[in-house]
Amino acid sequence: MSQTHRIPITGAGTGTDTGPPTVAAVHHEAESDDWLVFCHGLRSDKSGSYEQRCRQAVEAGYNAVRFDCRGCGESDGAFVESTLEARLTDLHHVVDYFDPDSYVLFGSSFGGKVAFHAAAADDRVTAVATRAPVTTAGTFDEYRAAVERDGEWTFDTGDRIDRRFFDALDRHPFDDVVTTLSIPVAIFHGGDDAVVDPADSFDAARRLETDVCLERFAGEGHRFSQAGEQRLLDRLFGWLEWADG
């Protein structure tokens, strides 16, 4: 069973005349006290593959939550304001809304960076898993150059990023995760990923001072095939039996 919730994002600078913005979150309920929260990528949302991920999470005994960050999917707000810090705030409000005693995080691409930094700051997180995580600001060098030149970058969808995106990114280097994170980590990365360099994940795994499971999926790109996605889920929940046991 799943249920959609509208979660208000309160705090300085988020309110309007009509009240605080809200994010859309879907809770897939399981009969347990175990929770798994999913963080989508930069230009993604909670739909598509996240529905299957949540269904399989429930089969594995987890209450699963997928949500749209502000400016994405069914949530309020403008994409241009959806910086790393805004997404960390959204995730914090979502978790506090459901109020689990502990939980696991899964993040894909830019959502992997969100998951890493959130896990490093929240003692309730017991494990963090990622797919093609962004671990270096160099992933966005093309966009940064355009923003420095023109003041903003516009994607083919019309969504924009500006200097606020890079200011927030620079305030949260991966070094902060390396020096803080002490829980088990899983990193899954497509060997043919042309968006986030697989070498970045190998470097991140070397630097992290905790238990790391790193798997390279040969032949998979930034978006996994259906077969690759199922392999990922099988490996994820197999790993969680150990990491979150």
Rank of each mutant, 00 (worst) to 15 (best):
V80Q: 06
D99M: 03
V177Y: 07
T135R: 00
R171I: 02
E142Q: 10
T157N: 13
F202N: 09
S75E: 04
I187H: 04
A168L: 02
D159N: 12
T136V: 10
G221K: 01
R124F: 08
D192P: 10
D167I: 11
A118L: 02
L91G: 09
W153H: 14
G191W: 03
D101A: 15
D211K: 11
D96Q: 15
G191T: 06
T154Y: 01
E152G: 00
P133K: 01
A119Y: 11
E142W: 06
R144V: 00
F166G: 02
L84A: 07
P184S: 05
R163T: 12
P133Y: 07
V128Y: 07
D200S: 12
L84C: 09
F202S: 13
D211T: 15
S102Q: 13
F174D: 07
T89Q: 14
R206S: 13
D211Y: 08
E81T: 06
V195S: 11
R131C: 11
D150M: 03
S182A: 14
F174V: 14
H172T: 12
G221L: 06
D159L: 07
G221H: 04
F188I: 03
G219A: 10
D122V: 09
I187F: 08
T179N: 08
D123G: 12
T210N: 01
F116L: 14
V177C: 03
P133R: 01
A137P: 05
F106L: 12
H172G: 02
A145H: 06
V147W: 00
T210V: 06
G221R: 02
A129C: 14
T136S: 15
S108A: 14
D141E: 14
F98I: 05
F98T: 05
D192V: 11
F217T: 04
W153Q: 03
